[in-house]
Write a protein that binds this DNA or RNA. Structure first.
Lengths: 197, 197
DNA sequence: TTGCTTACTTACTAGTAAGTAAGTACGTTT
DNA sequence: AAACGTACTTACTTACTAGTAAGTAAGCAA
């Protein structure tokens, strides 16, 4: 296991994950194939099977990587040192990136529609990811309300669910209509949360 | 074109639409085939092609039928005679039915993920449906605020987009987790809209 | 009774899907 | 130099996809 061989394998593996993720967020899990990825990478479909024997393996790896990203991101000093309001805006930034870059949705929005056709392992992985994200947001909201900079009723977890649900839906709206619809929904959400009634 | 022949054709056609809609809301447009419908109806796939030459025709017909339902529903005396709050709750009832019956989502939630893979005609049909639904909800919200029974900031259309987006997302949450998560999100939404701050 | 329409079935095409088995080029290890 | 592991390609199987063309049984209409 030399450094070079590892690096080369890692590169292809990563590029497969990147492309798979891109396709998944753009068109859903069932609407892309190993052929699509292989064509982009200029290799044969069987080469993808070498790295990820089944499509389920690939799907699980894509979601798991995103969970790792979340863990790293929420632990970064430039994130932990922010005020709750700034953390909330940092979250909005991430979602905003999906709209402007390509017409992508979030993982939840991309996979929920196809959910019943997904392999069990992917279903479980998506549940884990969503649970962890919701809990982080709930923590931010609770801290914000305590600091007096955020205003909402009910349990922080309920509000966090509602916020993430709205954001997931808003990305879908951006795809079906345009980015302006998205901006409107997020502005509405932000106003209600941050400006005292 | 006798009454009997028409009735028989209508029955099969309707059953195809019903099954297609069911599959679409349960698994997305790309994850069901004419074979799935044919098997349920105990006919051959070509029989489905007789009624709907292409899958695009079927998809468009399913969405268009739902638009007709909306037109009829919102014009019913038992709907128009309600107060805005009661109309809002009637809307929530419709969504609630999807959760309890089967793990279905709404049309928007089912098709937004696959949107970029859908035929143009279906994309346009979905846009029309969503626009009309949003406008109806905006009207209800505007009337409710004027009557002093609903409380929200911003333009009624923005709030309507946010409400429908949240409901679409909440149905997806119900599928990935359970109905209780859905109840929580809707309760949060309802409290914020109906109870004065 | 002949012809036309409706609602199919049978049999097919062409394309794509996931996945596998065997082979190969190349670099590393021993 | 021989053996091995990595990262593929080639060639294949099985299964499913949308869609079409031709045929047919039953009913109605002139």
């Amino acid at each position: 296991m030399s450094a070079q061989a590892t690096s080369s394998a890692y590169d292809t593996r990563t590029r497969i994950l990147d492309l798979g993720e891109q396709f998944m967020l753009a068109r859903g899990f069932n609407a892309f194939s190993y052929q699509h990825i292989a064509k982009e990478l200029e290799v044969k479909p069987a080469a993808i099977h070498y790295h990820f024997p089944s499509k389920e393996d690939l799907g699980v790896a894509i979601i798991r990587r995103q969970l790792n990203r979340l863990h790293k991101w929420r632990g970064l000093p430039r994130v932990t040192e922010l005020t709750p309001t700034q953390q909330f805006d940092a979250l909005l930034e991430v979602y905003h990136g999906r709209v402007t870059e390509r017409q992508q949705v979030c993982f939840f929005g991309a996979l929920a529609a196809d959910f019943q056709t997904l392999p069990e392992a992917m279903q479980q992985e998506l549940r884990t990811f969503t649970t962890e994200l919701t809990e982080w947001v709930a923590g931010v909201l609770a801290a914000g309300r305590e600091a007096g900079t955020m205003h909402f009723r009910g349990h922080p977890v309920s509000k966090a669910s509602q916020v993430l649900t709205t954001l997931a839906g808003a990305l879908q709206v951006a795809r079906v209509y345009d980015a302006r619809q998205y901006e409107r929904i997020v502005a509405q959400l932000r106003t209600e949360l941050l400006e005292p009634a």
